[in-house]
Every structure is written in structure tokens, then in C-alpha cells.
């Protein structure tokens, strides 16, 4: 993708993000303030890119799954499983490396399970992943013993609340993961093959694509992203909360992908746009907290904003926006000419 086509692809998301930021700063004018204290950057934008880490990570994997015309409802529960595994490993004294390895392996195994159900047994993705969505939290509770499993490891906690040259570690993790996955799918042929099976699985198989293995790999990718998100959520509160870790985040992740302009019918995808979608959602969440409305309004405000965004991005509405944009361009050109 060349620079200009990429820009055209993510333009709606950039505009939406800008609009949401402007809206929030109306209620909270100090939005843009970023200061550097105690070796860390502090400010609302920093909060957004830190708090948005779990959804951003989930959105990376979810984008690929959705590109294959699938969906992964289990990521929230997988977060809980992987967070619990990591906390358990630390608690057992296995050390940070082993804990991360076990959490990552748990995520990959969960993805393998989903992928096999979808690719080999032909179960509809929404049903296949629903199984783990429901059962996964139970598995996580078994690991934590039903309590909030706390641990004492500053190294591990660093992943949730530490900073690197002032930037929160969760932010570093999601940006690096996004770049990593982006390079993986665009510098190899994976992206093309994933889009191909998403548009037409049968034709792709007949063209020689190993669609089963590819589908499984995509669900495993999603599981791995969920593992990273689970590790961050667990490290953040220094404890694995099997009941609440990642609760309902699968829905936010799907929403991020949709706001990112990716079709639920599969095919063309953009990880970058999904990440922008995740940041849009997080800006809304943080904005609601800052605005100081009573809690009862939180979900309503979020829902209204999401509806407005989706309507503005809908195929019915886009032509009007483009028309408006072209008019604006023309009138600004004429104004320029008049000025000269």
C-alpha cells in the first residue's frame, strides 16, 4: 500500500479520533496537557494510550480473525486464563520468563482450540468461540482458586505500570505488537492469503491456499494477543482477577475493528485502522470519566457516540461526507484564488 492510499484508508478513523478528542476537550479543556514527572509522562493522552492497551492488543488479533470472515468471542476469557496462568507461575516462584512463556503458551493453546473447531470441524466461528468464552472464565477460576490471586513481583508489575523513557510499558507493548503483526502480514504474503480466504474460502482452497492451517494460525494469533492483554491487565493490578479480567472486552475489540472500517464479512483489513478504532473507544471511555457525569450515563453516552460514528462511516452516509469534503475543497480553492 502506498502512502497516499494508506492515508485514504485511515482518513475516516483519523477524523473520528480528532472529533472525539475535540468533543472531550470541550468538557475537559486540559486534555492536551502532558507533563514529565517522576520519569514518566503524565497526561490524559498518555492515560488513553495506556488504558487502551488491552483493547488495542485484542483488536490486532480480532482484525485478522474478522478478515477471515470469523469472529473470536473468547478473547476476554482467554485474557483471564492467561493472566491467571502468569500470576500462578509467579506465585509458584517460576520467575518472570517462565510466567510469560506459560501465559503465551496458554493463549496459543486457546487459539489452537478455537482454530481447530472452526477449520476442521466447520463450526461457525461465533459458536466455536462462544464455547471458550463461557468455559474459559471457569478455567481461569480454577487456576486462581476463585480468589483474586495476588503476587509479589516488581518485574512482572513493571509490564502493567512501568515506563520506558517515560512511555507506559503497556503502550510500548501494543505498539510493538501492532508493528510486529503489521510487518508479519504485509511483508509476507500472509495478509493477502488471509484476505483471500476471507472473501472466498472455497475458491482460495482451490487456488492452493492451505486455508485450514491459515485459519488455525489466525485464531492462534488472536489467542496470543489476548495473552499479552491478559498479562498487562494482571500486571496492572498486581493480581489475577478471574471474574473480571477482560470482562466484555471482546465486544470492545470487535467494536474497535468495526470502527476501524473493517467489514465483518471478511476480506480487506487494516490493523492500523483497528488500532485507531481502539484509541477512539478509549478516548470516549476516558472522556466519560473526566466529564464527571453520573455513572448512570456512562453506557448511554458511549452507545450514542458509537452509533453516531458508525452511521457517519456507513456506506449510505460516506458519499455525502465525500461530497461535503469535495465542496469544502473547491470552496477553499476558490477562496484562495479570490484571495490572490
Amino acid at each position: 500500500m502506498t502512502g497516499s492510499t494508506l492515508l485514504r484508508r485511515i482518513a475516516p478513523q483519523l477524523l473520528t479520533l480528532a472529533a472525539v478528542i475535540v468533543l472531550v476537550s470541550i468538557y475537559y479543556p486540559a486534555f492536551y496537557q502532558i507533563v514529565y514527572v517522576n520519569d514518566r509522562l503524565v497526561g490524559i493522552p498518555i492515560d488513553v494510550i495506556k488504558r487502551g492497551a488491552p483493547v488495542a492488543l485484542l483488536a490486532i488479533g480480532m482484525t485478522l480473525v474478522i478478515a477471515t470472515r470469523g469472529i473470536d468471542l473468547s478473547v476476554g476469557a482467554v485474557m483471564a486464563i492467561c493472566g491467571a496462568s502468569a500470576a500462578w507461575s509467579i506465585d509458584q516462584g517460576y520467575g518472570i520468563g517462565a510466567a510469560l512463556g506459560i501465559a503465551g503458551a496458554a493463549g496459543l493453546v486457546c487459539g489452537l482450540w478455537n482454530g481447530v473447531l472452526v477449520a476442521f470441524f466447520g463450526i461457525q466461528p461465533i459458536v466455536a468461540t462462544l464455547i471458550l468464552m463461557v468455559a474459559g472464565r471457569g478455567v481461569a477460576q480454577l487456576i486462581t482458586g476463585g480468589t483474586i490471586l495476588t503476587f509479589d513481583s516488581d518485574t512482572f508489575a513493571f509490564l502493567g505500570s512501568g515506563t520506558m523513557i517515560g512511555v507506559p510499558v503497556p503502550t510500548v507493548i501494543w505498539i510493538l505488537t501492532g508493528i510486529g503483526f503489521g510487518l508479519l502480514v504485509r511483508r509476507t504474503a500472509l495478509g493477502l492469503l488471509v484476505e483471500s480466504i476471507g472473501v472466498n474460502l472455497r475458491a482460495s482452497t482451490l487456488a492452493g491456499i492451505n486455508s485450514r492451517v491459515l485459519l488455525i494460525a489466525v485464531y492462534m494469533g488472536s489467542g496470543f494477543c489476548a495473552a499479552l492483554a491478559g498479562v498487562i491487565a494482571t500486571a496492572d493490578i498486581r493480581g489475577a482477577d478471574a471474574n473480571n479480567a477482560g470482562l466484555w472486552l471482546e465486544l470492545d475489540a470487535i467494536l474497535a475493528v468495526v470502527i476501524g472500517g473493517n467489514s465483518l464479512l471478511g476480506g480487506r483489513f487494516s490493523i492500523l485502522a483497528s488500532l485507531l478504532g481502539a484509541m477512539i473507544i478509549q478516548t470516549i471511555n476516558t472522556g466519560i470519566l473526566l466529564a464527571g457525569f453520573p455513572s448512570e450515563f456512562n453506557l448511554v453516552i458511549k452507545a450514542v457516540l458509537v452509533i453516531v460514528i458508525l452511521v457517519l462511516q456507513s456506506p449510505r452516509f460516506m458519499p455525502y461526507l465525500e461530497l461535503l469534503a469535495s465542496r469544502f475543497k473547491r470552496s477553499s480553492v476558490t477562496r484562495l484564488e479570490a484571495g490572490e
Partner: peptide, 26 residues
Amino acid sequence: VRSQTGDFTRTRGKEVMESFLQAENG
């Protein structure tokens, strides 16, 4: 001065407290 739901969970408690700190002069 500020009151928001933290859903009885640690994660949300931390997240909402962060926004309170931001909003109330650090």
C-alpha cells in the same frame, strides 16, 4: 467532588482513580 462507578473491580478502580487524579490537579 467526583463520583464514578468502578464496577467493584480492581482494574476499573485503578482506571477511574487515574482519571480522578488527572482531573484533580494530579
